[in-house]
């Protein structure tokens, strides 16, 4: 039976480390004895398109999150959070990086909305909105490539997050290059403290 459920929709742009982050969450859930299923889309992801993964924790069989039922949206890019809102309800935790990646634009296409207006309209509509200056923290931790660990830290810091912090850190060590553990842990803690 489906109980003790938690679902996380993770979205951003190809190349931001979304699949790696999702795998860490899933593996940590497995280590905690939870059932986890996850959906990823590969293929075009390295070509700058929108990318998302869906994680469902609990006795689910399907790995696609139903509309308006996600417990958390973890956004690596503000515009992509807006694109993922069909998965959200009023109580979904919206945790996201505020640094925009502007898609290649040619004359006649929609222009990128102002990030402050995205954040304020999300706050007007949803109860749990957590903007994080993720790219800034990642650079402070040593490299923009640690952005995914900043956001993972922020996700774990949200009260409802179902997996223990130490299990996440264990899965991080198991899935990331040992050479960068120190930087990734630093990034993770920056993200964690930004929310806690």
């Amino acid at each position: 039976m489906v109980k003790d459920n938690y679902s996380i929709y993770i979205c951003g742009v190809g190349g931001q480390g979304i699949i790696k982050t999702s795998t860490i969450i899933g593996e940590a859930g497995m280590d905690e004895g939870l059932n986890v299923v996850m959906s990823e889309i590969h293929g075009m992801s390295q070509r700058g398109g929108s990318v998302s993964t869906e994680i469902k924790i609990g006795e689910y069989k399907s790995s696609i999150i139903e509309d308006h039922t996600s417990n958390m949206i973890l956004g690596f890019e503000p515009l992509e959070v807006v694109r993922g809102l069909s998965k959200a309800n009023k109580d979904t935790s919206l945790v996201f990086n505020t640094y925009p990646i502007v898609p290649a634009q040619i004359t006649g296409t929609n222009s990128y909305p102002n990030v402050d207006s995205i954040v304020s309209s999300l706050k007007d509509n949803y109860n749990k909105v957590y903007p994080v200056e993720g790219s800034k923290y990642a650079e402070e931790a040593g490299n923009i490539l640690s952005l995914n660990m900043v956001l993972l830290g922020s996700a774990v810091a949200v009260n409802s997050f179902p997996i223990e912090k130490e299990n996440i850190i264990k899965a991080m060590k198991n899935n990331l290059n040992e050479k960068f553990h120190k930087m990734n842990l630093k990034a993770f803690e920056y993200g964690y403290n930004a929310i806690k």
């Binding site: 075009m44 070509r47 700058g48 398109g49 807006v82 898609p103 296409t109 929609n110 909305p113 007007d124």
Partner: peptide, 16 residues
């Protein structure tokens, strides 16, 4: 205000 943002989202198609 959010509806307006959603209705005018720039696409992010895969690119070269």
């Amino acid at each position: 205000s959010l509806e307006k943002i959603i209705d005018n989202l720039p696409t992010r198609a895969p690119t070269l």
